[in-house]
Amino acid sequence: MTSILAKKPLRIIPRLDIKGPNLVKGIHLEGLRVLGQPHDFAKYYYENGADELFFQDVVASLYGRNSMSEIIQKTANEIFIPLTVGGGIRNIEDITKVLRCGADKVALNTAAMGNKDFVRQASEKFGSSTIVVAIEIVQETDGRYLAYTDNGREYTGVDAVEWSEEVVELGAGELVITSVDREGTGGGPDLSLLEKIAERVGVPVIAHGGVGKIDHVTDLFDKTQVDACAIASMLHYNLIHKNKVQRSLSCNEGNVEFLKKNIGFKNIDLIEINEIKSELEKHNFFVRN
């Protein structure tokens, strides 16, 4: 009895990286492949068990543009689960705009690092539960975990665990912890990093980066106290492999060779959300299924 009750509700969150009009996927947040139209993937995930969706505009903070509005609007009109949007959000006006397009939460990273007061102002104005802070983390050769910005490109020298605690103090309602070292590799999440952060903060922690096998997900929830797992490769490649999404492409953004050649998927289990959840239930975890 106790053991079942003691399992907290967990979430599976498809993560959609967006470049221009396309859904893309990279490795270590670099080398982006075009996978298709974000809306097709989002709708499929909504209809097939996603607990939330996470959209990240992967170049917005680099080029200073914000091209997500159209994609968010189109998605929000048909999708009635929480939608978090990150990438290129610099000020209160940007947050207002993104929420008006239909997002429920925004994820801040670069702008939060540049101006800590932004996190405080944003959570005061929109409520903590609307403000997610995304932290992109690289492990240094001496073992330290440091926070990076601009989609894992810019060194800050800031200790990632301390930064996690600080942004929660400033009002962040949730954290997305990305291991840049693991992201896109399918080699498994960085459990020691995730547990370090999950045990230090009181707010929900979303793990991102490295999940490539179903065992990685059960392991993640077994060995850390994180509350949710953001998944990209396993879910996206599964849909492409099963031809569940159109391969209509806008070729002006990113590398489409992958889709044209139908290259294989190294190290990645191809899987549906409800298959992941069934496996979690077998391990006595509490998920919506």
């Binding site: 106790t2 009750l5 003691a6 907290k8 509700p9 967990l10 979430r11 607990d51 903590s128 539960s129 309602g173 949730e174 009181g202 707010v203 929900p204 106290q225 509350d227 949710a228 919506r288």
Partner: peptide, 14 residues
Amino acid sequence: EIYKNFRIPFIGWN
């Protein structure tokens, strides 16, 4: 003690 890893706020499906 049993529920110490349950977050507040609770964010999720129940």
